[in-house]
Design a binder for these strands. Structure first.
Lengths: 200, 200
DNA sequence: CGCGGGTTTGATGATGCTCAAGCCCGGTGG
DNA sequence: CCACCGGGCTTGAGCATCATCAAACCCGCG
């Protein structure tokens, strides 16, 4: 209980209140259901074949979710940083084995929901359905935009787009991870960058 | 009222009951809110810049949603056929101008929800929140899978994947539309197909 | 100081695009 | 019934983009 008092719920409470204005009492209940956890960097929160049993809100840190294709190549789906959620929703909700890996890139502080606590939350406070639907909707919109960029833009355009959209990420993650996210080889990203600086 | 009696709601009722088992009475209310509409082929349900004011369940027909990039190239996001929903969710929910086009490829029969009727539905029958969340989740999972394929597979692999995943679509839509969906040029898709048949 | 991961650079080659021409086929008008 | 038209599909030549492989470099760390 003392430990709980050390956790700052302001950010996540603000976060959910952007979807629906909850009362202090409701927020207290919500907070009481969350499980605070710290994870060192380079840890796997989830590996392929496991059933994802969490939805985690990132208080601090940086995480990547990625898929490994049949040739052993990693495709990074998302970088997740402060004020975002991370999970494999398909695996979590259908309780089926995941096809994804989820790995911390920095030491992380998380607030975690597991399937039981999420059920409890939704039964108690049905308006949270909306919070999660909006979360998924935002994710879908972002993924659609990324799909369009992946299809219709050149490597350089994709990288420039990435820089304006996620200006803080390049300082936090390795360059070959960004290449993997963009769907290009690390060597080619290096050449693109060289060309961009040469062009002042 | 006579007209309504002609519309067959069985399919859409089955559809929503896969998410939550609703009573006959609840389903009747749901059906009464839906608006039946027929649309001839080659019509636009939505054009870039408009605010999307519908979520449509496809009773019959085939629809494409696509984006036009800065060079005027179309990128097809989805083919939507019977028993699927079509909308620009981002535009619909946030009431912001859409970046998408939605066009019928065949004569269509639709069941339509507009923002007011959807609100009414969700207030009356909160469990429908879940129906729509699952709908978005499925869409997200599909889009993620497609993103992975787009990044990690060759043109031929993507086409083969498309054939197994959507076996009925090639008979219904033009080949250059499939190329646009796969993110390859129509000429190259033609060559891929030629190569595949040559290899028996 | 040497090791090792990450990045850079260059040479070579594959994948897939562009452009242009020809073909197939259904629809239309004479 | 045929000639013509037009949209979509195919085919080929040449080319841009980007991957692959190998070597060198950079730099933090033990």
């Amino acid at each position: 209980m003392k430990v709980m008092a050390l956790v700052n719920f302001d950010k996540i409470n603000d976060h959910v209140c952007r979807c629906h204005s909850f009362s202090t009492k409701e927020l207290d209940f919500f907070d009481s259901i969350l499980q605070y956890k710290t994870i060192p960097k380079k840890s796997f929160l989830l590996q392929e074949g496991e059933i994802c049993n969490f939805e985690a809100y990132v208080l601090k840190g940086c995480i990547r979710t990625f898929y490994v294709d049949q040739n052993g190549f990693e495709v990074i789906l998302q970088f997740v940083i402060e004020d975002w959620w991370v999970s494999d929703i398909a695996s979590f909700h259908n309780q089926v084995p995941s096809k994804l890996f989820i790995e911390t890139l920095e030491d992380c502080e998380l607030l975690i929901l597991n399937p039981e606590s999420k059920d409890r939350l939704l039964n108690e406070l049905p308006y949270f359905e909306r919070v999660f639907r909006l979360m998924v909707q935002r994710n879908l919109a972002a993924t659609q935009n990324r799909l369009i960029d992946t299809i219709s833009k050149s490597a350089q355009e994709k990288y420039e787009e990435f820089l304006v959209h996620y200006p803080t990420i390049p300082q936090r993650v390795a360059q070959h991870h960004i290449a993997s996210y963009l769907g290009i080889s690390p060597e080619f990203l290096s050449k693109v960058r060289a060309k961009m600086t040469r062009a002042y």
